[in-house]
Amino acid sequence: MERLMKIDRRLLYLISVALVAVTIFMPLGLPVKVSPLAVQTYDAIQNLPDNSVVLIAPMYDPGAAGELNPMLKAMLYQCMERGYKIILGNTNWTLGVAIAHDMITPIAAEFNYVYGTDYIEFGSKPGGSVWMQSAQTDLAGAAIVDFNNDPIGQFPLIQAVPRLTQEYIAAVLVLDCGTPGAVEWLQIITQGTSIKLIVGEIQMSVPDSMTYVQSGQYNGMIAGSRGGAEYEQLVGRPGAALKSQDTMSVIALMVALFIVLGNIGYVTRKR
């Protein structure tokens, strides 16, 4: 047991890396059952009125891309299949919009979406909550230029959506990994309005965010990578999240095993 307690942590890293590699190269194909929360989230987006305008805010950076990219991709597919017009952008997460730009461009081409009319990217604007307040009263004035640095007021979609209020947008879809994030969109834009707030959440923040789902303040939540895998199935676009579930299951088992072994070693040594 003494030896168990003195295992070099680097050996554990090596075992972990080997397990991840094995499950990537040889998928186990474990089934992923769709939870009621994923269905609720899918329905919340699917049941928006036809021709709705939705705002998608990728409030993350490359650190969280592993979990949130698959959710964003599936969201874009669902929104475009439903024919919603999309306003894409965020505040304070500059790299999130760059990631989202690379993602929306080919999907928009696939659905023949016209830039400026069917979708627009306003980029990332500094200011956090302050910016959201400005956009609530004057979207073009708050955004000024789009992702490509062109004056944003010239585009038909922005002319049709002068403000981020319930008269103009049906839902805000937030990919959330910190502050400012979904809570700020709730506080400034959706609280007390008919605008739906749907959140793609990183695994770490799921317990905190669940209270917002329970209270009805979030109309849906994609809960971590597992939620992403369930949502991909509902959208009918199996992707990276679904593929990663084998690895996550094996990793969860491995961590549990390490914890049990560590505790056995600890208790034995204590005696």
């Binding site: 592993g66 979990e67 990183i202 971590g224 996550m248």
Partner: peptide
Amino acid sequence: NTVLYRWNLFLGRA
């Protein structure tokens, strides 16, 4: 959840 999130980060890189 934090532990799983960290693993997800690693999985993204892997």
